[in-house]
């Protein structure tokens, strides 16, 4: 988009005024601490992941990845992301639209509810589904009578993933839509557009970069989720094991190359996400709401 005004909002680093600048020594110390910390706790583990994965050569790496159970875990993870991310996009846009553009009772409650998955431990989220859909659970009897399997099967994994990733899209869009207000939509309606056209031609393009940013974070979390999925999956190899679960199983079996090979794929996903996220922030900082860091 050739849009100079918006571009100028992108993060830029102006030279600080002298009054708030630390002495060179203090600056150096702060920078060394920050880099050392990040190096030990973030960069080093990342290097070790790739190092271990390739410790027995490229052949062993590709062999580990072509194991049928590993293949199945990768397929399941992709399937779960493919279902939960689009659903969360739809839910996220609807929730953000409702909260940003209308006044209604219970709005504050809804806003708080959206944040719930962030504040609840993922294990609890998983347990909630066990209590709800498990054999002794609230709906367990009814589900069994109708032959519907949710727990320890793909539907349960998808539900748990949707639960933990729900806030990402909504939280990204709410502040953005609130800031933009209803003006553009009113203009579109006054020009004769119907609701769908207004959404498609006006609302969606106005939030597209924020939406993409939310989708990116949502996808990374959907593929990487461990806690909630671990509770509901049942760890059936080749059937209900997602990549993070499979990594744990392989590691517990002392299959270091296998575990780290799968882990390297997840790490690779994280790196790609990070690069895309940074690119989006650089280019469209203003259009991405100020709620970062989840």
């Amino acid at each position: 988009m050739a849009d100079p005004e918006i571009k100028s909002y992108a993060p830029h680093h102006e030279s600080q005024s002298a009054a708030v600048t630390e002495s060179p020594t203090a600056r150096a110390v702060l920078m060394i601490v920050a880099f050392a910390f990040l190096g030990v706790f973030l960069l080093l583990p990342l290097i070790i992941v790739f190092n271990e994965a390739f410790s027995k050569g490229v052949g062993a790496y590709t062999e580990a990845l072509s194991d049928p159970d590993t293949r199945s875990a990768i397929r399941l993870t992709l399937l779960v992301a493919a279902i939960s991310v689009p659903l969360n996009v739809v839910f996220g846009i609807s929730a953000a639209w409702a909260i940003a553009k209308f006044e209604f009772k219970g709005k504050a409650f809804l806003t708080t509810l959206i944040d719930l998955p962030f504040s609840v431990s993922p294990v609890i989220s998983g347990l909630v589904y066990v209590l709800l859909f498990g054999a002794q659970g609230l709906l367990g009897g009814w589900l069994k009578a109708h032959g519907i399997v949710i727990l320890f099967a793909v539907p349960g994994i998808v539900l748990a993933t949707i639960f933990v990733t729900f806030p990402f899209v909504a939280r990204e869009l709410i502040p953005l839509m609130q800031e933009q207000g209803n003006g553009d939509e009113e203009a579109a309606l006054s020009l004769g557009a119907n609701g769908w056209q207004t959404f498609w031609y006006v609302t969606l393009p106005n939030v597209k970069w924020g939406l993409l940013y939310g989708v990116l974070l949502c996808n990374a979390r959907a593929m990487g989720e461990f806690g909630a999925v671990s509770v509901v999956s049942g760890h059936i190899r080749g059937l209900t094991n997602t990549m993070p679960l499979h990594v744990e199983i392989l590691y517990n079996e002392y299959n270091a190359v296998g575990a780290f090979a799968v882990a390297s794929l997840l790490a690779g996903l994280a790196l790609v996400t990070l690069v895309l996220k940074t690119l989006l922030e650089m280019r469209y900082g203003a259009e991405i709401a100020a709620t970062r860091g989840h």
């Binding site: 003006g183 009113e186 203009a187 006054s190 393009p205 106005n206």
Partner: peptide
């Protein structure tokens, strides 16, 4: 508003920025 067929110019123009 669609059925009324009116031309409305908004205070802050509300031009579609994209």
């Amino acid at each position: 508003i669609q059925e009324r067929n009116v031309g409305f110019v908004f205070q802050h123009y509300a031009l579609f920025r994209h």
